[in-house]
Design a protein around this nucleic acid. Sequence first.
DNA 1: CGTAACTTTGATTAGTATCAAAAATGGTGG
DNA 2: CCACCATTTTTGATACTAATCAAAGTTACG
Lengths: 238, 238
Amino acid sequence: MSERETFLMPLLNRLLLRVDLTQSDKDAVLALPQSVRELAPGEHLVRQGDRPSHCCLMISGFTVREKDVATGARQILAVHMAGEMVDLQNVLLERSDHDVRSLTQAKVVIIPRTALEEFWLETLVDASVFREWIANVGRRDARARIAHLLCEFAVRLEAAGLAETGSYELPMSQDQLADAVAMTPVHVNRTLMALGKEKLIERDRRSVRISNWEKLAEAADFDPGYLHLPERSSKIFH
Amino acid sequence: MSERETFLMPLLNRLLLRVDLTQSDKDAVLALPQSVRELAPGEHLVRQGDRPSHCCLMISGFTVREKDVATGARQILAVHMAGEMVDLQNVLLERSDHDVRSLTQAKVVIIPRTALEEFWLETLVDASVFREWIANVGRRDARARIAHLLCEFAVRLEAAGLAETGSYELPMSQDQLADAVAMTPVHVNRTLMALGKEKLIERDRRSVRISNWEKLAEAADFDPGYLHLPERSSKIFH
DNA sequence: CGTAACTTTGATTAGTATCAAAAATGGTGG
DNA sequence: CCACCATTTTTGATACTAATCAAAGTTACG
């Protein structure tokens, strides 16, 4: 298998979750023009106001989309992981309306804007997640908000083959979690501790084990439908 | 001009804001298969869990997208107005992940899912607005949140030719506003009154006049870029 | 006019933020 | 391998924004 094929397998796997690709579809994906870029943590992939010329397929690591508001607070809008397309949301727009940064060391494949068009579905799923986040941040209390994020990550990581059922390495500091759920880091910490004391989760460093999926999902008001993954992609639901 | 052309002019106008359509593009839009549907206030266009078979172009009135959370609270995710496509976000997905309802009496044109494909750009703008709302609800206080919504409405209504500079009929009760900004109706009321006392806005019934655009936009942390409208679409900015 | 929906005002409470600082962790150079 | 430093996590005490509960005005409308 060529190096290029190795890079693109995560994307192919991800697409295969939703659609049945013919061999020629797969060939088309593997033939996308591309170049690799290595990112240090915190590096900007896209800045608000940029005129986008490409988008990225993530090979490894995590990236975030984020916005700043006037108070100086930062709001994380989405977290992206290996196998996901980053910035389809921006690439056809005249101006990027938010920043994209690496959260961890990360590797991406650059795909020029001329080479896409296949990925509308992905953008719709993105938007679906945004909507869920509006509801999460707007209408759930601290406990439910954190629980919801933990559930979402569990399901998405499992779908990407990056986690065993309900166990994963959380790629974010409590500070960053706070920006994702619109809370203070102090309150994120207290909420995580409380979820631990309730025996819904166990933590060690940043690894998370969901010890009671049912109760956590209930606490979170979590329904995975908005992720638009096929049934078979998750073992958590029986 | 035929009846069908009359219905579709709002959409054409809207598209022309962003792209320069050739005559044959315009013909293609006018040739979309369609049928008209009349909605009473509160009627459901789409329900969460539906298998979407079509999307809608709004002719008149307002519709909202919304989600419910476990507490019984409702979160409005977007408000749509005449000339806008409703539910591009859902139409290619297997299951709709949120409800769409009419807010007012409304008229829409039904467009079957086979007849689209041109509208990716619109979905990206939708998603951009979702992101802004996450930030709004997550990180702005009551005053800024309300101010932001008022600014967004002013710019969008003006772009749609539905409002003079900074004056418009707000299509929502304070109860509904509360659901859109994730506050209580009581606090929405107090915040509106405060904005009035500060002389940033004037209200009479549900009509809103922005008396001090600069100060309101500053209070709102409002930057219209996320709406991805062309410069010429708004006179508010000089 | 009478009734339901909506807006406004008031009093109290609750959930998070804020401010501060101590403990734990991870990485680095000596 | 240890000592040191920066970062992150944890704990505590207090303040404040917005929620809640309640009820009086107001407006729309049949």
